[in-house]
Amino acid sequence: MYLVANIDQEICAATSCKLCTQYCPEANTIQYDTELGKDKGFKYGSAYVAVDRCKGCAQCVWVCDNMAKHKAIKMEMIDQIGDQALTENISYHGKTTQAVLASPWKS
């Protein structure tokens, strides 16, 4: 098993500073969805990780902890984090993207 970044939407959606997205070395890996978290009453949407592209470097954790000071990202084992965003389920809609979450372990 291996570690990938997992963003706590409730913490992220409270501010959605969009910092980590600019510092991830991998393209199209930390994406942004303006609707995520709205069902829980948060206004701004949240960042999420396309786990099939994440290389597990934890730079985003450093950025969220030290620059954004929000501590919304943790490295977790990919088989322990439930449904996640995958590149094949992400669609683009102008100023936002949308991810349909699914298991990284499809049969």
């Binding site: 969009k18 997205t21 600019q22 510092y23 991830c24 070395p25 991998e26 393209a27 199209n28 930390i30 994406q31 942004y32 960042a47 592209r53 290389k55 597990g56 470097c57 934890a58 730079q59 683009y92 102008g94 100023k95 936002t96 993207t97």
Partner: peptide
């Protein structure tokens, strides 16, 4: 605007966390 549009760069084999990649 990153995180909302499709980037030109695709997946590649450079090391995890490489600053050159960023």
């Amino acid at each position: 605007q990153v995180g909302t549009f499709k980037e030109i760069l695709e997946e590649h084999p450079m090391c995890a966390g490489c600053a050159m990649t960023l």
